[in-house]
Protein backbone atom coordinates (compact mmCIF):
# COMPACT_ATOMS: atom_id res chain seq x y z
CA UNK A 1 0.00 0.00 0.00
CA UNK A 2 1.17 3.47 -0.86
CA UNK A 3 0.57 6.35 1.56
CA UNK A 4 -2.72 8.09 0.71
CA UNK A 5 -2.84 11.71 -0.32
CA UNK A 6 -6.14 13.48 0.37
CA UNK A 7 -5.59 16.92 1.88
CA UNK A 8 -2.47 18.72 2.96
CA UNK A 9 -2.00 21.94 4.87
CA UNK A 10 1.61 22.89 5.25
CA UNK A 11 4.49 25.28 4.95
CA UNK A 12 5.72 25.81 1.41
CA UNK A 13 9.42 26.33 0.66
CA UNK A 14 10.25 28.63 -2.29
CA UNK A 15 12.88 27.40 -4.75
CA UNK A 16 12.72 29.93 -7.60
CA UNK A 17 14.96 28.06 -10.04
CA UNK A 18 14.09 26.70 -13.48
CA UNK A 19 15.30 23.32 -14.77
CA UNK A 20 15.91 21.86 -11.29
CA UNK A 21 17.44 18.54 -12.35
CA UNK A 22 17.56 15.19 -10.61
CA UNK A 23 21.32 15.51 -10.04
CA UNK A 24 20.53 18.62 -7.96
CA UNK A 25 17.70 16.85 -6.11
CA UNK A 26 19.82 13.83 -5.22
CA UNK A 27 23.43 13.61 -6.45
CA UNK A 28 24.69 10.32 -7.83
CA UNK A 29 26.76 9.28 -4.82
CA UNK A 30 23.50 8.58 -2.99
CA UNK A 31 22.16 6.26 -5.67
CA UNK A 32 24.29 3.41 -4.40
CA UNK A 33 21.70 2.42 -1.84
CA UNK A 34 19.60 -0.69 -2.33
CA UNK A 35 16.83 0.80 -0.15
CA UNK A 36 14.13 3.40 -0.77
CA UNK A 37 14.42 5.13 2.61
CA UNK A 38 16.87 7.46 4.33
CA UNK A 39 17.60 9.82 1.43
CA UNK A 40 15.93 12.95 2.90
CA UNK A 41 19.09 14.09 4.66
CA UNK A 42 20.80 14.28 1.24
CA UNK A 43 17.97 16.03 -0.60
CA UNK A 44 19.55 18.91 -2.61
CA UNK A 45 22.87 17.85 -1.08
CA UNK A 46 25.22 20.05 -3.13
CA UNK A 47 23.13 23.19 -2.57
CA UNK A 48 22.43 22.36 1.05
CA UNK A 49 25.90 21.48 2.40
CA UNK A 50 29.39 22.88 1.81
CA UNK A 51 32.44 20.79 0.91
CA UNK A 52 32.96 19.91 4.58
CA UNK A 53 29.39 18.75 5.02
CA UNK A 54 28.25 21.83 6.98
CA UNK A 55 24.84 23.30 6.26
CA UNK A 56 24.80 26.36 4.00
CA UNK A 57 22.56 28.73 6.00
CA UNK A 58 21.21 30.54 2.92
CA UNK A 59 19.73 27.44 1.33
CA UNK A 60 15.99 27.47 1.77
CA UNK A 61 15.59 24.10 3.50
CA UNK A 62 18.27 25.06 6.03
CA UNK A 63 16.35 28.14 7.16
CA UNK A 64 14.50 27.60 10.46
CA UNK A 65 11.10 28.50 9.00
CA UNK A 66 11.35 25.90 6.21
CA UNK A 67 12.79 22.90 8.01
CA UNK A 68 9.32 21.43 8.35
CA UNK A 69 8.22 22.33 4.81
CA UNK A 70 5.78 19.87 3.25
CA UNK A 71 5.35 21.72 -0.04
CA UNK A 72 7.98 22.91 -2.52
CA UNK A 73 7.28 25.72 -4.99
CA UNK A 74 9.71 25.77 -7.93
CA UNK A 75 10.32 26.94 -11.51
CA UNK A 76 9.71 25.46 -14.94
CA UNK A 77 10.74 21.94 -15.98
CA UNK A 78 11.22 20.64 -12.43
CA UNK A 79 12.81 17.18 -12.15
CA UNK A 80 14.49 17.11 -15.55
CA UNK A 81 17.31 14.69 -16.16
CA UNK A 82 17.61 11.10 -15.11
CA UNK A 83 14.89 8.56 -14.33
CA UNK A 84 16.20 8.03 -10.78
CA UNK A 85 13.27 7.46 -8.44
CA UNK A 86 15.71 8.35 -5.69
CA UNK A 87 14.63 11.95 -6.44
CA UNK A 88 11.03 11.54 -5.24
CA UNK A 89 12.23 9.13 -2.53
CA UNK A 90 14.51 11.89 -1.16
CA UNK A 91 11.77 14.52 -1.40
CA UNK A 92 9.30 12.30 0.41
CA UNK A 93 11.83 11.24 3.04
CA UNK A 94 12.50 14.90 3.82
CA UNK A 95 8.78 15.32 4.45
CA UNK A 96 7.67 17.07 1.26
CA UNK A 97 4.40 15.63 -0.09
CA UNK A 98 3.60 18.15 -2.81
CA UNK A 99 5.58 20.07 -5.44
CA UNK A 100 4.10 23.06 -7.28
CA UNK A 101 5.73 24.24 -10.51
CA UNK A 102 4.71 25.48 -13.97
CA UNK A 103 5.90 22.23 -15.60
CA UNK A 104 7.69 18.95 -14.91
CA UNK A 105 9.89 16.48 -16.72
CA UNK A 106 7.85 13.46 -17.75
CA UNK A 107 9.57 10.63 -15.83
CA UNK A 108 9.90 12.59 -12.59
CA UNK A 109 6.22 13.54 -12.77
CA UNK A 110 5.18 9.88 -13.06
CA UNK A 111 7.60 8.79 -10.35
CA UNK A 112 6.00 11.20 -7.86
CA UNK A 113 2.59 9.54 -8.11
CA UNK A 114 4.13 6.13 -7.37
CA UNK A 115 5.36 7.48 -4.05
CA UNK A 116 2.41 9.37 -2.65
CA UNK A 117 3.72 12.76 -3.80
CA UNK A 118 1.40 15.12 -5.65
CA UNK A 119 3.13 17.21 -8.37
CA UNK A 120 0.87 20.15 -9.26
CA UNK A 121 1.34 22.08 -12.49
CA UNK A 122 -0.09 25.61 -12.49
CA UNK A 123 0.31 28.54 -14.87
CA UNK A 124 3.42 30.67 -14.35
CA UNK A 125 1.53 33.65 -12.89
CA UNK A 126 -0.21 31.46 -10.30
CA UNK A 127 3.09 29.83 -9.34
CA UNK A 128 4.50 33.34 -8.87
CA UNK A 129 1.69 34.17 -6.43
CA UNK A 130 2.41 30.96 -4.51
CA UNK A 131 6.16 31.67 -4.62
CA UNK A 132 5.54 35.05 -2.92
CA UNK A 133 3.24 33.35 -0.44
CA UNK A 134 5.90 30.73 0.29
CA UNK A 135 8.47 33.48 0.91
CA UNK A 136 6.42 34.57 3.92
CA UNK A 137 7.55 31.40 5.69
CA UNK A 138 5.70 29.71 8.51
CA UNK A 139 2.99 32.34 8.63
CA UNK A 140 1.61 31.33 5.28
CA UNK A 141 0.36 27.78 5.10
CA UNK A 142 -0.80 26.53 1.73
CA UNK A 143 -3.70 24.10 1.56
CA UNK A 144 -4.03 21.37 -1.04
CA UNK A 145 -7.26 19.44 -1.61
CA UNK A 146 -6.74 16.64 -4.11
CA UNK A 147 -10.40 15.58 -4.26
CA UNK A 148 -11.44 19.15 -5.13
CA UNK A 149 -8.23 19.73 -7.16
CA UNK A 150 -7.52 23.06 -5.50
CA UNK A 151 -4.59 24.96 -3.98
CA UNK A 152 -5.55 27.67 -1.45
CA UNK A 153 -3.39 30.40 0.04
CA UNK A 154 -3.64 31.86 3.54
CA UNK A 155 -5.02 35.00 1.85
CA UNK A 156 -7.96 33.03 0.53
CA UNK A 157 -6.91 32.77 -3.11
CA UNK A 158 -7.91 29.46 -4.68
CA UNK A 159 -6.33 27.92 -7.78
CA UNK A 160 -7.64 24.82 -9.55
CA UNK A 161 -5.31 22.24 -11.05
CA UNK A 162 -5.61 19.36 -13.49
CA UNK A 163 -4.68 15.79 -12.69
CA UNK A 164 -5.16 12.52 -14.56
CA UNK A 165 -8.26 10.73 -13.18
CA UNK A 166 -6.50 7.38 -12.71
CA UNK A 167 -3.47 8.89 -11.00
CA UNK A 168 -5.76 10.89 -8.72
CA UNK A 169 -7.73 7.78 -7.81
CA UNK A 170 -4.55 5.83 -6.95
CA UNK A 171 -3.24 8.70 -4.78
CA UNK A 172 -6.53 9.24 -2.96
CA UNK A 173 -6.86 5.53 -2.18
CA UNK A 174 -3.15 4.77 -1.75
CA UNK A 175 -3.45 1.99 -4.34
CA UNK A 176 -0.69 -0.33 -5.50
CA UNK A 177 -0.96 -0.17 -9.27
CA UNK A 178 0.86 -3.49 -9.78
CA UNK A 179 -2.02 -5.17 -7.96
CA UNK A 180 -4.50 -3.35 -10.20
CA UNK A 181 -2.68 -4.46 -13.35
CA UNK A 182 -2.32 -8.05 -12.17
CA UNK A 183 -6.12 -8.10 -11.90
CA UNK A 184 -6.10 -7.65 -15.69
CA UNK A 185 -3.85 -10.69 -16.24
CA UNK A 186 -6.42 -12.18 -18.64
CA UNK A 187 -6.03 -9.24 -21.01
CA UNK A 188 -2.23 -9.55 -20.85
CA UNK A 189 -2.43 -13.32 -21.47
CA UNK A 190 -4.68 -12.73 -24.47
CA UNK A 191 -2.35 -10.06 -25.85
CA UNK A 192 0.66 -12.37 -25.50
CA UNK A 193 -1.18 -15.17 -27.31
CA UNK A 194 -2.04 -12.82 -30.21
CA UNK A 195 1.49 -11.39 -30.35
CA UNK A 196 2.96 -14.90 -30.47
CA UNK A 197 1.02 -15.36 -33.73
CA UNK A 198 1.67 -11.96 -35.32
CA UNK A 199 5.20 -11.21 -34.06
CA UNK A 200 6.67 -14.62 -33.15
CA UNK A 201 10.26 -13.28 -33.33
CA UNK A 202 9.84 -11.02 -30.30
Amino acid sequence: MMEKFEKLSGIAAPLPLINVDTDMIIPKQFLKTIKRSGLGVNLFDEMRYDDDGNEIPDFVLNKPQYREAQILVAGDNFGCGSSREHAPWAIKDFGIRCVIAPSYADIFYNNCFKNGILPIALPQEQVEVLMKEAEKGANARIEIDLEAQTVSTSEGQVFSFEVDAFKKHCLLEGLDDIGLTLAKADAIDAFEARAAETRPWV
Binding site: E85, I107, N111, D164, I178, T181, A185
Partner: peptide
Protein backbone atom coordinates in the same frame (compact mmCIF):
# COMPACT_ATOMS: atom_id res chain seq x y z
CA UNK B 1 11.93 3.14 -26.10
CA UNK B 2 11.91 5.21 -22.95
CA UNK B 3 13.16 5.48 -19.40
CA UNK B 4 11.07 4.54 -16.37
CA UNK B 5 11.39 4.88 -12.60
CA UNK B 6 12.04 2.03 -10.20
CA UNK B 7 8.35 1.56 -9.32
CA UNK B 8 7.68 1.13 -13.02
CA UNK B 9 10.62 -1.29 -13.29
CA UNK B 10 8.86 -3.37 -10.66
CA UNK B 11 5.57 -3.02 -12.55
CA UNK B 12 7.15 -4.25 -15.80
CA UNK B 13 8.94 -7.11 -14.03
CA UNK B 14 5.64 -8.26 -12.50
CA UNK B 15 3.26 -7.63 -15.41
CA UNK B 16 5.36 -7.08 -18.59
CA UNK B 17 3.20 -3.99 -19.15
CA UNK B 18 3.25 -0.30 -18.28
CA UNK B 19 0.33 1.95 -17.40
CA UNK B 20 0.58 4.69 -19.99
CA UNK B 21 -1.20 7.63 -21.50
Amino acid sequence: AHGIGTSEVEHVLATQTLIQT
